[in-house]
Simulated assay, not measured.
Amino acid sequence: MMNYKEIKPIDLNESTFRLIGHDWMLVTAAHNSRVNTMTASWGGFGVLFNKNVAYIFVRPQRFTKEFVDGSDRFSLTFFDQSFKKELSYLGTASGKDEDKISKAGLTTLYLGETPYFEEVTNSYK
């Protein structure tokens, strides 16, 4: 995982209300050799039957939904405020119409089969 340090959910000190509701996140999945992402400001983290979980909601009309539904994995990526412009763009443009990830200046990397973005390494440290 490049220069990443694993943070166990129990050790997370960030406010999930701020991370998701204010700072936003990217929901990203790969399907049929393609990757798509969308900005989200809803979802959450918790514990369900003694298991740590993350949950998201994707409207059926969103192009990203077929990627999330077609994959066993997806990533939730959190950036600092310096990426707000990119996150706003990724939430309004459709990956069906263009390569919005490249246009936003993000670089897709993989951890196994799970896509995420290289630029997050310079965010939240």
Score class of each variant (00 low, 15 high):
Met2Ser: 14
Tyr4Val: 01
Tyr4Arg: 04
Glu6Ser: 10
Glu6Ala: 13
Lys8Ala: 08
Pro9Trp: 05
Pro9Glu: 07
Asp11Thr: 01
Asn13Ala: 09
Asn13Leu: 12
Glu14Tyr: 04
Thr16Pro: 15
Thr16Asp: 09
Ile20Val: 12
Asp23Arg: 10
Leu26Gly: 10
Ala30Asp: 07
His31Thr: 14
Thr39Lys: 06
Ala40Tyr: 05
Ala40Lys: 07
Val47His: 06
Val47Tyr: 03
Val47Glu: 12
Val47Thr: 13
Leu48Lys: 11
Asn52Cys: 00
Ala54Ile: 11
Ala54Val: 14
Ala54Met: 11
Tyr55Trp: 15
Ile56Thr: 13
Arg59Lys: 12
Gln61Met: 10
Thr64Tyr: 04
Lys65Met: 10
Val68Ile: 10
Ser71Glu: 11
Asp72Ile: 02
Arg73Ile: 02
Arg73Gln: 04
Phe74Trp: 04
Leu76Asp: 01
Thr77Val: 09
Phe78Asp: 06
Phe79Val: 04
Lys85Gly: 10
Lys85Glu: 13
Glu86Met: 07
Leu87Ala: 03
Leu87Val: 01
Ser88Asp: 14
Ile101Met: 03
Thr108His: 00
Tyr110Glu: 03
Thr114Asp: 01
Thr114Gly: 12
Thr114Ile: 09
Pro115Gly: 09
Tyr116Ala: 03
Tyr116Glu: 00
Tyr116Gly: 01
Glu118Gln: 04
Val120Ser: 14
Asn122Tyr: 01
Asn122Pro: 00
Ser123Leu: 12
Tyr124Arg: 14
Tyr124Phe: 14
Lys125Gln: 14
